[in-house]
Write a protein that binds this DNA or RNA. Structure first.
Lengths: 334, 334
DNA sequence: ACCTCCGGTTGAAAGGTTTCAACTTCCGGA
DNA sequence: TCCGGAAGTTGAAACCTTTCAACCGGAGGT
C-alpha cells in the first residue's frame, strides 16, 4: 500500500502471492491457463503492490511494441488533425495506440521524431514529411520499419502512400470559377517547395492562366498578406476571383477582403482547398475543394497495418479523388 | 549492408569493430573517453550494420524514458493544439520528446492512453481530462508518475495544474455586452458536466441573468443548432446578444445567423471564448475572450519538468487571467 | 629501477518480462 | 494398484543496453 520504494515487478508480485514468476506472467498473458484461486491471489497481490507492467522489458523480450505514430506536418491545421482521427479509427480495432508527433514543418524535428520512433521499435510510422524525397525516409524504411506516406507521394520508390489528386483538385477549382464567368483569376499559394502547391497550381494552369501570388506559408496570416497585395491592385487589372492553395489562406484572404470593403463574392470570388470545418462555418461560407480527410487517414493506417503484419504485403499507392463544394464565396454565375 | 536478418545490436557492432561491448557503449554515451581511432572504427561498423539503438533495452536499464506526453481532450479543437505548441516550446530545451494523444472526449480512451504511458515509464504526463475528479488520475500520480492538469483544476487535491480563470472570463464577456447596451442576453453552452461551461456561466450570472441555451457539445454543429433555436424565438423576447462557451459554438451560431438573415452584430451580438485564430479570421470577426494558450502549455510543461527532476518540487496551481478582445461581432454601443 | 597515475579498454552483472520445456498433482480408466 | 494424461505450475534462459570495478600498458616522477 505505502511502499513507493520504486515500483514492484513480477518478481515481487510472485513472492507476495507465493507463486512462481512464470505464473504471474501467465496471469498477465494467458489467464485461462491459471486456476481461478491462484489468479485471484496474484491479482490481489498486484493490487496491493500497485504493480505496473514495465513496457520496456516487455518490448525488449517481444521485439516490438504495439504502437504506431503519425508524424504530422502541422498540428494546428485542422486538415491534419482530421486525418489523424481517421488513423485512430483504423488503428483502434487492432489494439494499437497512436502517438501524434508534430514536426511543425521543421525537417530537423521530423528527423528527431523518426529517429526516436525507430529506436522505440514502433510497429510502423505514418508521416506527412516536409520533403517526400528526404533520404532519411528511405533509410528508415530500408532498415525495416513499415512506413506509409500520407498526403504525399514519392516518385520512383516503391512504398505505400495515400494522397489526393491535387492536379485534378486545382483544375476543378479553376473550372468552377470559369464556369461562374470569371476571366481574371489569381492563384494564391506557396512556397513552391511544397508539392501540394505545385500540383494545385499545375491543375489551375491546365484550365486557365492565373496570376500567381506567392505566399511564404499556408497560414491565415499569409492569406491576409496576400489579400493586401491583391486588393491593392488597380481595379482594371485586379483579378475577380482567387483560388487559394488551402483554406487557411482563403480564410485570411476572405477576412482581409471583407474588412477592407471588398465584397465577397461580388467583387472577389474565393475558392479554398481542404474544406475544413471552418470553411463552411465562415460567415461567408467558403467554396472549397474537399478531400476525404478521414478516409485518407483510415486507408493509410490500414496499409500500415498490412505492411506490419502481412508477410505477403505489397506496396500500394492510393489516390483519392477530390470534390468541389460550392458555397456562397463564389456566388452564382455573373 | 544487406543483412536484414534482424537489426544488429551492440554486440554485433563490437564484433565487427574488433572491440568489446563496453567500448561500443562508450562511443554511444561518452565519446570523449574513447580514442579517436577506436571511435571511428566503431562508428564505421555501426554504419555498415545499420545499427539502431534499442530504446527498450536502454530504458529498461535506465529506469525511465525521456519522453513526456500530452493527453488532449480534442485534437481537432485549435485551442488544444495551440496549448500543445506551448508544451513543445518548453520541452524541447530539455531534450524531451512530446507525444500527443487524443482522448477525443472519451473517458475509456483517456484511461487507455494513461495506462499505456505509465507502463512506458514516461517522464511525466500532461492531461486535460474528461473529468478532473477521475480517481484514475490520483492513482496514477500516487504511483509516482508526475502529472500536471492542463486547463483544469482539481479541488481538494494537491497537484500541479494550470488553468485560466473562467469565472472572470465569463464575467468579462457579459459585462462587455452590458456595456454595449444589451439587456436580453443568452448563454450558449453545454453540457453542464464540463467544468469550463459551469464556470463561464457562473461568471456570466455574476453580471447578468442570461437565458441559458444548453448544447450537447462544444462544436460548430452544435452552435448552428443553438442558432436555430435562438433565432426561432419571437423577436419581442429574443435575446439581442449571445455569449458562447467557446469559439466553435460561436462560429456555428454566427454562420447560422448570417445564413438565416439575422444581421451580426445589429440583430444579434456574439461573444466567443478562446480567441482561436479562426475567430479573428471569420468574415465577421468575432469578439472573444482570449486565453494565453501557448503560455498555458509552456507553464504546464515547466511544472512537469520541475516535478520530474527537482526533488524539492512543490505542487503549484497556476491561474492565468483572460482578456476580452473586442471585434466586429459585438459592434459598438447601441 | 621502481612506483604512481592515467587514458583507454574490458567483461560481468543488472534491469523486468516472456517463453518454454520440464515437472508435479491429481483423476479416471484399465 | 498402476498407468496415462490433463491441468497447473515452475525456473532458467533470452531479449539488449548500460554501468562499473578491474585491468593493461606506458609516461612521468623519484
Amino acid at each position: 500500500m505505502l511502499e513507493p520504494t520504486r515500483s514492484a515487478g513480477v518478481k515481487d508480485v510472485a513472492a507476495r502471492a507465493g507463486v512462481s514468476l512464470g505464473t504471474v506472467s501467465n496471469v498477465l498473458n494467458r489467464p485461462d491457463r491459471v486456476s481461478a484461486a491462484t489468479r485471484l491471489r496474484v491479482e490481489h497481490a498486484m493490487a496491493e503492490l500497485g504493480f505496473v507492467r514495465n513496457e520496456s522489458a516487455r518490448q525488449l523480450r517481444a521485439g516490438r511494441s504495439s504502437t504506431i505514430a503519425y508524424v504530422m506536418l502541422d498540428a494546428t491545421n485542422p486538415f491534419f488533425t482530421d486525418v489523424a482521427q481517421g488513423i485512430e479509427d483504423a488503428a483502434a480495432p487492432h489494439d494499437l495506440s497512436l502517438y501524434l508527433c508534430n514536426s511543425d514543418n521543421r525537417p530537423e524535428r521530423e528527423l528527431a521524431y523518426l529517429t526516436r520512433l525507430e529506436q522505440q521499435r514502433v510497429q510502423g510510422v505514418l508521416v506527412t514529411p516536409v520533403d517526400p524525397a528526404d533520404p532519411s525516409l528511405d533509410a528508415l524504411a530500408s532498415r525495416g520499419t513499415p512506413l506509409v506516406l500520407v498526403d504525399r507521394v514519392r516518385e520512383g520508390v516503391t512504398r505505400c502512400s495515400v494522397a489526393v489528386d491535387d492536379v485534378l483538385g486545382g483544375r476543378l477549382a479553376v473550372e468552377h470559377l470559369l464556369d461562374r464567368g470569371h476571366e481574371r483569376i489569381a492563384f494564391v499559394g506557396g512556397p513552391a517547395s511544397v508539392g501540394q502547391v505545385r500540383d494545385r497550381l499545375a491543375g489551375a494552369r491546365s484550365a486557365a492562366d492565373p496570376l500567381v501570388i506567392v505566399t511564404a506559408a499556408l497560414t491565415v496570416a499569409e492569406g491576409r498578406g496576400a489579400g493586401e497585395r491583391l486588393n491593392g491592385m488597380p481595379s482594371r487589372t485586379r483579378p475577380t476571383a482567387a483560388f487559394c492553395a488551402n483554406d487557411l489562406l482563403a480564410l485570411g484572404l476572405l477576412q482581409q477582403s471583407v474588412s477592407s470593403g471588398v465584397r465577397v463574392p461580388d467583387d472577389l470570388a474565393i475558392v479554398g482547398y481542404d474544406d475544413i470545418d471552418f470553411a463552411g462555418a465562415a460567415a461567408v461560407p467558403l467554396t472549397s475543394v474537399r478531400q476525404p480527410r478521414r478516409e485518407l487517414g483510415r486507408t493509410a493506417a490500414e496499409l500500415l497495418v498490412d505492411e506490419a503484419t502481412n508477410p505477403a504485403h505489397e506496396h500500394r499507392q492510393v489516390i483519392f479523388t477530390p470534390e468541389l463544394v460550392a458555397r456562397t464565396s463564389t456566388g452564382r454565375r455573373r
